[in-house]
Design a protein around this nucleic acid. Structure first.
Lengths: 332, 332
DNA sequence: CTGAAAGCGCTTACAG
DNA sequence: CTGAAAGCGCTTACAG
């Protein structure tokens, strides 16, 4: 049915192996042969069968993306689409396709990843999250399968791309301190997520550097990443306590937090949070300064790094792969 | 290196073809043989090579997802993650993987789709958007490649899953009319997108049914799907004109619209919009009623339909595939 | 610079 | 109910 490499070879009067070499632009083929073969390929509307190629070459040009257990909470978070865009862009540039893990619970996600790895469906994997005791991460690592984690992996020597979360939160807290705030609240999230702990550390460090005495009542942690959680929490805090300002560890929570605050208080409370992207397109978020985490770079950097990991593996080279993406405080 | 079907066959004392049949749970194999072979597979930690399977069977168990030209505008819109979740869920259930088109401009998206189709990388495609004069859609259609569009395709006889956009907007407008509103504004979007036109039609129909005379100044169309556009527009309208209420055709625009309105006016203006999901998790959106478009069902329905399309093609059956997903007005 | 041959790891008629 | 053989469409040493 479809035109194969043999058909092209016959019509061009060369061997199939020559056609392959032309497709891959091998330097050992003469210019003349290349032109002839290319002409025939165009004429016959030839396209290589990628399954055959993958089988023979043991390379797929596909990267698998591992998502967290996800309800809408993850997908709705602006972090997700922005990282995706970075991955997408880098993938297009390097001619790699992206395959998604399916399933929302651990079990189906795990079997989805196993299919990819054992079935040789992908050349490597990118984890879009980092959490403690992740059986999927452990499995892939133990298989010595190429991977990169976006975030801080809980196992050593796993390649990763991350922000400097501790420094970032420290900078954010110092920003508020410099503005004169003293009693600053920290609105955290799921402490299973490493970045929450890192940001909390940076928050505390900033206070300690300034010799400000704080206690646990300044920290609101162990909550899920949902706007309504921020909303309810803000209402509670606004009614019961007094703070000068807040560091909110998650952007999605912050949207709810600000709304909740407004709903019960006339005073505007300074909030600083961490944004997945330069949000000049969201004017109603413009009111507060924020830390730009450059999520787009996280995605792009992860894919580019994975390609290096794969290449290094082919050459059996040992490397340490890790990269930190810069952040910046944006005032509007 | 990896265990193959031959290794299993040898150890189990059967032919490779028998192993294949056991893997696919063929009814013609004896229970005894099945048990024996399965035992050996487990023992040897055997997993099928999916590339080899795809090459031999001409089936990939992979579905390709075609995204629109995308900046953050699409990805940030809540419609996107909610549809994804529906696709993801249906994919997990039917053991299909999802492959993404990469690239943000037409050219790279097109070549990405061509790779999928010609390279036999996927069994079918799902378009996550519907727009006029889409060269990618035309290409896939002309190749007679299985596909489903989420939205209203501009070409006839292409399978699709959609909302009843016209009826939906009519219901929304009637809702406002029933509340006593008379002068109602319509905030649209990109008229290249079919659903915007359909919603505009429904809006007009509702007014006409009630014999309300309106003119073009009630309709704000031809704008991009961004909150800041809604924001600026709301500020402009709130200052210059008087409306009783608004139908906002896009949820993402609506978030900006409401904020913009608040920023210059003390009066709360009734707004009804169309939500991708039951947004009980977003309390600050709770203030207004909305139409739930069931985007999760759109995704799930599209994938399920595509599987039927593929099956029908295998049997060379002719079918009309189209499905409308229900909507409902939600008051909080 | 080019070709013939073997092989990648499955599946699918066909035969018994 | 099971097996032997051919084939899916590429790539990769090897030989010349």
């Amino acid at each position: 049915m479809a035109v194969t490499i043999k058909d092209v070879a016959r019509k061009a009067g060369v061997a199939p192996s020559t056609v392959t070499r032309v497709i891959h632009d091998s330097p050992i083929i003469s210019q003349k042969t290349k032109e002839k073969v290319r002409e025939v390929m165009k004429e016959m509307n030839y396209y290589p069968n990628l399954n055959a190629r993958s089988l023979a070459s043991k390379k797929t040009s596909v990267i698998g993306l591992v998502f967290p257990d996800a309800t809408d909470a993850f997908y709705q978070n602006p972090f997700f689409p922005t990282v995706m865009r970075g991955l997408n862009e880098a993938g297009a540039k390097s001619k790699y396709s992206l395959l998604l893990t399916t399933g929302n619970d651990l079990e189906s996600r795990f079997s989805s990843v196993q299919r990819m790895v054992h079935g040789r469906q992908v050349d490597g994997l990118i984890f879009l999250y980092a959490r403690q005791n992740d059986p999927i991460l452990e499995f892939v690592h133990q298989q010595h399968f190429p991977m990169v984690v976006i975030g801080q992996p809980s196992i050593e020597n796993i390649p990763f791309v991350n922000n400097r979360n501790q420094q970032m939160a420290k900078d954010a807290t110092n920003y508020l301190l410099d503005k004169g705030a003293i009693k600053i609240g920290f609105i955290g999230g799921d402490p299973e997520q490493q970045f929450i702990n890192d940001r909390l550390k940076g928050f505390k460090e900033a206070l300690e550097d300034k010799h400000i005495t704080y206690d646990d009542s300044w920290v609101f942690n162990d909550l899920s990443f949902l706007p309504e959680v921020g909303y309810d929490l803000a209402q509670y805090i606004a009614r019961e306590q007094s703070f000068d300002a807040f560091v909110v560890a998650d952007q999605y929570v912050a949207t709810g937090f600000k709304e909740g605050w407004k709903s019960v208080s006339d005073s505007v409370v300074p909030v600083i949070t961490f944004h997945a992207f330069q949000s000049n397109e969201s004017p109603f978020l413009r009111m507060d300064p924020y830390v730009n985490i450059n999520a787009h770079e996280l995605g792009k950097g992860a894919l580019d790094m994975l390609l290096e990991v794969i290449e290094a593996e082919d050459k059996s080279e040992e490397h340490v792969f890790q990269k930190y993406v810069d952040h910046e405080i944006v005032e509007l």
